[in-house]
Design a binder for these strands. Structure first.
Lengths: 106, 106
DNA sequence: TTGATAGGCAAGTGGTGACTTGCCTATGGT
DNA sequence: ACCATAGGCAAGTCACCACTTGCCTATCAA
């Protein structure tokens, strides 16, 4: 749902992870950790990145595939298309761009 | 900058406000309050909506124009285009889609 | 089978953000 | 001049989220 998508995009570290996956798809957790450190000098723990990946996966932006002791993470840009059809081109996708399920009771 | 944009989109109430402005552009604060109440049964205070509008304006998603005692709010979808060029079509906009300024030191 | 690598689970902490409350300013009608 | 309307400012509360720490599981190589 939309809530998960935008929450996932709200964190700059998660956006960087998406950038990394655009540049090189199918990386493991440790690869991503290493890249964030060397490219941006990020001193985040492995668990921090792992939790970020879980959030991205929950939003459908990342799909993971396990092979032996490795877990490869792949980008999925399909959820991002919904942002476009909601506000940029609301006439596409059969009229409504607003997702009626995008709501939470407080 | 990107940080403000995604933070602005992270809240469901703010996304609803954008939906309202897509449907009818140039509304005042009280008009938006009324619409959110009648259409979604939202019991938010005027100040809450006012603060949301300030965040949206800080992100460049809303532009306001004052006329007498009225302040009209208009939608600006230009910042949303950058989301598309960053991950969906990174080859547009002269190569890089990643905004190097999208980073905060912790 | 031991050790190293790749990853997961769970509880705790600090900071940030959404919302409220109370009071203040400004414009316009009568 | 008065009052109602439209909006702003500032402080306080509360819940959530990012991150850490500590420990545990699984796969592979020697």
């Amino acid at each position: 749902m939309a809530e998960d998508l935008f929450k996932a995009l709200a964190d700059p570290t998660r956006r960087r992870i998406l950038d990394e996956l655009v540049e090189r798809d199918g990386q493991t957790l440790f690869e991503i950790c290493g890249r964030l450190v060397t490219k941006y000098g990020l001193g985040l723990s492995r668990q921090a990145i792992s939790q970020h990946l879980a959030v991205l996966e929950g939003a459908g932006l990342v799909v993971s595939r396990r092979e032996g002791r490795y877990k490869f993470h792949e980008l999925n840009t399909e959820p991002l298309e919904r942002i476009v059809t909601r506000w940029l081109r609301p006439d596409a996708q059969g009229e409504t761009g607003a997702d009626s399920s995008d709501w939470r009771v407080r």
